[in-house]
Each structure stands twice: as structure tokens, then as C-alpha cells.
Computed example of a mutant assay.
Amino acid sequence: MKTAIHHLASRRHWIGLACAALCAVASPLAWAQDYPNKPVKLVVPYPPGGPTDIVARAVAQKLQERLGQPFVVDNRPGAGANTGAEAVARSAPDGYTLVVATTAHAINPALFTKLNYSLLKDFAPVSQLTSGPLVIVANPALPANNVAELIALAKSRNGGLNYGSSGNGQSTHLSAELFSAMAGVRMTHVPYKGSAPALTDVMAGQVDLMFDTMLSSMPHVKGGKLKALAVTSAQRSAAAPDLPTVAESGLPGYEAIAWNGLLAPAGTPKEVVARLNTELKAVLESHEIRQRFEAQGFAAAWSAPAAYGAFLQAEVDKWAKVVKASGAKLD
């Protein structure tokens, strides 16, 4: 009798373990099929109106249409884009809190003496979103209309020329530092909390110039409130084919680009990441989004999660060298 009871208990034990194992496998799959079943928060670590915010809102709208749940943009600027990134790194890894990363997040590991998160360890890469050049824009009254004249003016003023950026350590900051180092000039850096307020001061004449994304700058150029001197990519941009590159108009060898991408907290189920990646592929390959981004100087740039992870590693390594050469450091 005892033996029979023992065998029955043992059998129930192994059946229970088998069911638990099956549930462990099935649960993420079921979760992914059901995802999302509530609003998704898309954290943008910059103020409203800037290039990252513009990209995020366009992508959020399309994801909402495809997945049937609100994708809510949550602007959390501060600390060189680290405030928003850290908040997402500490969020539940369930796919309902995501962050739109930028070139700045690849720069920050070398720039900041202490970060409370790791770009490469605390996030699960989902996909790159965009890639594109920066453009040097200036107040229309600035007495320089091309790169050669800008370099000459900067040398004559010896630090008296100032430039705005979307924040310390952003691509809009270090691309200008790279320019200054290669041109052998000194310019004074004026950091802002995002591109939008910086551009406002350039247009008002409070700041002389800025290295900014075409997405946020070119509408003001077309409106006559800013003048564009050059793009920072190796080739001219299809969005402004008459605008020369920095390299061809006075500073050979210069190149700097900006990008956006989507990250989830580390530990987010792979099935959820894969679902997001699949939907993003459809969004970024749509004619509407491609046209919308390309008209502003950005290219839609979908990538598989593993490829985006490799890209992030390469970006961290590349910008570490630029930061070291510039001598820039932030606490």
C-alpha cells in the first residue's frame, strides 16, 4: 500500500514538474501573442520638439495603429539624456516601458565619470530607427556662408564664436568639438536641454551657430530663420543636394552622423522584443515614414536586435576615442 502511494506521489511530482516546465516555455510565447494588452510608454530623454521627439512621435503613432494600444511618448530630459535612459533601465522588463536612444548614449560611457546604468548591459536592443547627418546652421547675420569662412571667422575671434548644443556630450556637442580640433580653432560651447531651445537662441542671435540634425533644423532653414553651411556626412544629403559636406568645403576628412534607436530593459522576453522588431520593420519600411524622414534629412534604418547590439558596441568604441581626444569629461 505504502509503495503504491509512494509511486502515485512520485508520479504526481514529475507530472507537476513537467507542467511547470511547459508553462515556463509557453508563458513567454502566450505573453508575446497577447502583447501589448495595455498602453506602452515610449521614453524620450529630450524635451518636446527636438529631432528625437519628432522621430519618436512618428514611430509611436504607427505602432499604435498596428498594435491597437496607445504608445505614449514620455519626455524626460536631463543629465545629458541619462535621466530618461536610467529610468527605463530600472523599469520592469515587460515591454511596456521603452526608450528612444541616440548617439549621445553611445558617447556617455566615455564622457561621464559615473553612470548609474550600462548601455550595453542594462538594455535589450530592439532596432535602430534612423540615421543621418548633422547640419551646421547659423544665425543669418553671422558673417560666414561656408565652412572655409567659418574657420577663418573662428580663428579671428579666438574663442569668441559660440555654438549651441542639445546638451553636454551629445552628438551636437562632440561633432563641433571634432570640427574645432580638426580645424585648429576654439569656439565656446553653450549647452541646452535639447535641440529646440538651442535652435531658438540661434535664430534669436543669442548663439552664433549649431551642429544639429537636419530633421529639426531644415524647416527653419527653408523658412529663412537660419542659414545652412554644410552637412557633416561623407556624402551630400538627398534632402539638400545643393548643400556641400564639411569635408568638401574646407575641412577634408571630417565626418559625423546621428542616429536614433529603440531599447527595452534587459531581461525583456525575447518574444516581446521580436514582436516589436517585426512591427518596427513594417513601420520603417513604409513609404509614408521613409518619405517623412528623408524629407528632413534622416534615413529610416531598421535592424535586427543582434545587429543593433553590435552597432551599439561599435559606436561606444568609436566615440570613446573622440571623447578621449577632445579631453571632455563630465561628473
Score class of each variant (00 low, 15 high):
241 P>M: 06
329 K>T: 10
17 L>G: 12
188 T>R: 13
226 L>C: 11
66 R>L: 13
134 L>A: 07
70 P>T: 04
263 L>P: 01
322 V>D: 01
254 Y>S: 08
247 A>K: 11
293 F>N: 03
41 K>R: 13
99 V>Y: 05
317 D>C: 00
256 A>P: 00
217 S>H: 00
283 V>T: 04
184 G>P: 14
240 A>L: 06
12 R>P: 00
226 L>E: 03
58 A>L: 05
101 A>D: 12
143 P>G: 00
299 A>D: 13
96 Y>T: 02
143 P>N: 04
116 N>I: 02
195 S>T: 12
45 P>Q: 06
181 A>W: 07
147 V>I: 15
57 R>K: 02
169 G>V: 07
134 L>N: 10
61 Q>V: 08
169 G>C: 04
96 Y>H: 09
250 G>P: 05
217 S>G: 04
261 G>R: 07
53 D>E: 12
302 W>K: 11
324 K>F: 03
117 Y>P: 03
151 I>E: 04
237 S>M: 09
97 T>D: 07
204 A>I: 09
246 V>M: 09
227 K>D: 05
104 A>L: 15
183 A>K: 01
32 A>N: 04
325 A>Q: 03
299 A>P: 00
20 A>T: 15
205 G>Q: 09
297 G>L: 08
179 F>H: 06
152 A>Q: 08
174 L>N: 10
86 E>S: 05
246 V>G: 01
259 W>K: 07
206 Q>F: 06
127 S>P: 08
182 M>W: 00
114 K>Y: 14
156 S>G: 13
128 Q>E: 12
316 V>L: 10
111 L>T: 08
182 M>P: 00
197 P>R: 14
101 A>V: 14
154 A>N: 13
44 V>T: 06
282 A>N: 10
188 T>D: 01
190 V>T: 14
83 T>H: 04
148 A>Y: 01
252 P>D: 09
289 I>W: 07
